[in-house]
């Protein structure tokens, strides 16, 4: 069964609540209530307007790059798409299986063996046990870790851990792929093999949303781009135009 994958966002806004230390204490709250706010009164939770009024519609074949400065809302938008953050307002409708590679080293259990970690990560990423078992041999072969896979991950070098994580994530079948920066293994000898696997992985996905600070990455992998500034979309369209708008803003932003 293959349903058409799509992403539809309309007027999405997201306020990020800043829950400070005073807000985190139940005792403070009760004390405040008991003393009529004399001892503690910190009722307001301030928010950051992380995303404001974003509309976007993507269909199969779209590979969109998210560009913008740090804190512009790229990662937040990815997290909304991944279903981690619920929007404050607006509509998000997504069809298809989502795989996000926001943090590939996530969920490594240091005491578990490499093979066990492949299973754990696969399950957490949303695969079924049978599905992971089917892919286990292929993943294990790709990592080239051999007998190390039967040893606990805590003794691995960081390069070995990354390799394991990379191999597992890229074994997933996704309709929609969400990436925060391009993933890699950082291992020179392994680089070429990893790049090939990554492009196969990306080609299997019907829609890609990729946030990156690198123009060359965006130019290489994307056929569309979206520029975010202070949580708003300021440019949207083909890659060249959006990157142009990013680097040479016609209207100078003088907000503090």
């Amino acid at each position: 069964m293959s349903r058409v994958s799509s992403i539809e966002i309309r007027n999405l806004s997201l306020d990020y609540p800043l829950v400070g230390t005073a807000n985190l204490s139940l005792k403070t709250r009760l004390l405040g209530a008991a003393t009529g706010g004399l001892i503690a009164s910190n009722k307001t939770v301030s928010v950051v307007k992380a995303l404001q009024d974003i509309s976007l519609s993507l269909c199969e074949g779209d590979r969109i790059g998210l560009v913008g400065h740090n804190g512009a809302g790229k990662s937040t938008l990815l997290k909304v798409l991944a279903g981690i953050y619920q929007p404050t307002a607006g509509l998000v409708r997504i069809q298809g299986r989502i795989v996000s590679t926001l943090n590939i080293s996530l969920g490594m259990e240091p005491e578990a063996t490499g093979l066990e970690n492949i299973m754990i990560r696969g399950l957490l990423l949303g695969m079924k046990r049978t599905e992971v078992s089917q892919k286990l041999d292929e993943i294990a072969a790709f990592t080239e870790l051999g007998d190390y896979l039967n040893l606990p991950v805590r003794i691995y070098s960081s390069g070995m851990t990354t390799r394991l994580a990379f191999a597992t994530v890229t074994a997933m079948d996704s309709d929609i792929l969400l990436m925060d920066e391009i993933i890699g293994t950082g291992d020179a000898a392994f680089m070429e093999k990893a790049e090939k696997r990554l492009s196969e992985f990306m080609n299997r996905s019907k829609i890609i949303v990729l946030a990156s600070h690198s123009d060359s990455v965006i130019k290489r992998f994307c056929n569309k781009a979206l520029l975010l500034e202070h949580g708003r979309v300021t440019a949207h369209g083909n890659v060249e135009d959006v990157l142009g708008a990013y680097h040479n803003p016609t209207v100078e932003l003088v907000s503090g």
Partner: peptide, 11 residues
Amino acid sequence: MTRSSDTQQID
């Protein structure tokens, strides 16, 4: 192989 589709509406 892919699971019978996930509509990731948060529900």
